[in-house]
Simulated assay, not measured.
Amino acid sequence: MPVPSALLVLADGRLPAGGHAHSGGAEEAVADGRVSGPADLYAYCLGRAHTTGLVAASLAAAAADGLDPLALDHAADARTPSPALRAAARRLGRQLLRAARAAWPDPALDAVAARHPRGLHQPVVLGLTARAAGLGPADAAAASLYESVGGPASATVRLLSLDPLDATRVLARLAPVLDTLAAEAVAHAARAGTEGPDALPARAAPLLDLTAEHHARRPHKLFTT
């Protein structure tokens, strides 16, 4: 089955949605010495995909499946302990919604922008964008998971002067894992459709939350998060 072209556009890092300014916690991981090369990057991205990545993908899949965006936004808030990450998620949500309304004009997206001027969490907006683009929950989950590891991989190239080929190799190794997690996210979203957003996963990554707060106080940094 061919990959929908809209999915390629949505997952493209060149989509002007602000993701280039975020490292997904990689900047702090590099500063702390937890990521110093390709092997560390793989381990970091693997852990991120299985925790916050799955949570975000499940939220995106649920939004693409038509669940109430505000209820999903509350669920995202409850699963994001770090104030810095909550603020960043809403800022990214606003930026993505702006890009989405330009790329895929849709009254539903206009209504979201009017009702939620502070912005919704980025994974929720990602799911709404996928829906407006004619994509489904599986597409939204796949795009979200790729973003959860693609951002740190791209950032590490800059932070460590890592060979881009090594970063690409890491992403290629992660591909089967992302496919499995995307299917899991879709299943969680389907369950949330009958049981409500509380049925969505709430896997935590406490170190990411703690280091995000530390990063927010850094006077000099390359990335916002």
Results as ranks from 00 to 15, higher is better:
Tyr42Asp: 11
Ala204Ser: 15
Ala192Pro: 10
Pro38Asp: 09
Ala199Asp: 00
Ala133Val: 12
Asp139Gln: 14
His215Asp: 03
Arg86Thr: 00
Leu7Tyr: 03
Pro201Gly: 00
Ser36Trp: 02
Leu41Asn: 08
Asp40Asn: 13
Ala64Ser: 04
Ala182Ser: 10
Gly33Thr: 08
Pro197Tyr: 00
Glu147Tyr: 03
Arg169Asp: 04
Ala21His: 07
Gly25Ala: 13
Ser5Ile: 13
Pro2Ile: 07
Tyr146Glu: 14
Leu72Asn: 02
Ala26Ser: 10
Lys221Ala: 14
Leu126Asp: 09
Gly53Met: 02
Leu41Trp: 08
Gly33Lys: 09
Gly47His: 06
Pro197Arg: 11
His214Asp: 11
Pro206Lys: 10
Glu195Gln: 14
Thr225Gln: 09
His188Cys: 02
His121Ile: 04
Arg115Gly: 11
Ala17Met: 12
Thr80Trp: 01
Val3Glu: 14
Ala138Cys: 06
Ser58Gln: 00
Arg218Gly: 06
Gly196Val: 08
Ala212Leu: 11
Ala11Ile: 09
Ala187Pro: 03
Ala175Glu: 10
Thr129Leu: 07
Asp179Glu: 12
Leu135Glu: 03
Ala199Pro: 11
Val3Tyr: 01
Ala187Asn: 03
Gly150Val: 05
Ala60Val: 00
Gly37Lys: 13
His116Thr: 10
Trp104Asp: 14
Leu174Phe: 01
Gly150Lys: 03
Pro123Lys: 13
Ala89Pro: 09
Leu178Trp: 02
Arg217Leu: 10
Gln95Thr: 15
Arg91Leu: 05
His22Thr: 11
Leu165Gln: 15
Leu208Lys: 04
Ala61Pro: 04
Arg94Tyr: 08
Leu181Phe: 04
Thr180Phe: 03
Leu165Thr: 13
Thr80Glu: 01
Ala75Ser: 15
Leu54His: 09
Pro201Arg: 03
Arg217Gly: 02
Glu195Asp: 13
Gly127Glu: 06
His220Gly: 11
Pro16Arg: 08
Leu160Phe: 00
Thr194Trp: 07
His215Arg: 11
Ala143Phe: 02
Gly33Tyr: 01
Arg173Leu: 06
Ala216Cys: 06
Arg14Lys: 05
Asp68Lys: 06
Leu46Glu: 14
Arg158Cys: 07
Arg169His: 07
Arg158Asn: 01
Asp73His: 14
Ala88Gly: 02
Gly136Cys: 01
Asp65Phe: 02
Ala143Asp: 02
Ala43Arg: 15
Ala153Ser: 08
Pro16Val: 05
Met1Ala: 14
Leu67Val: 03
Tyr42Lys: 08
His188Tyr: 10
Ala31Asp: 03
Ala63Cys: 11
Ala87Thr: 13
Gly134His: 13
Glu195Phe: 01
Ala140Lys: 06
Ala78Arg: 06
Leu67Gln: 06
Arg173Tyr: 02
Pro38Lys: 12
Ala57Arg: 09
Ala172Tyr: 12
Arg131Ala: 15
Ala132Lys: 12
Leu15Gln: 10
Arg217Asn: 03
Ala11Glu: 12
Arg101Lys: 04
Pro197Asn: 08
Leu200Ala: 08
Ala76Cys: 00
Arg91Glu: 13
Ala6Ile: 04
Gly13Ala: 15
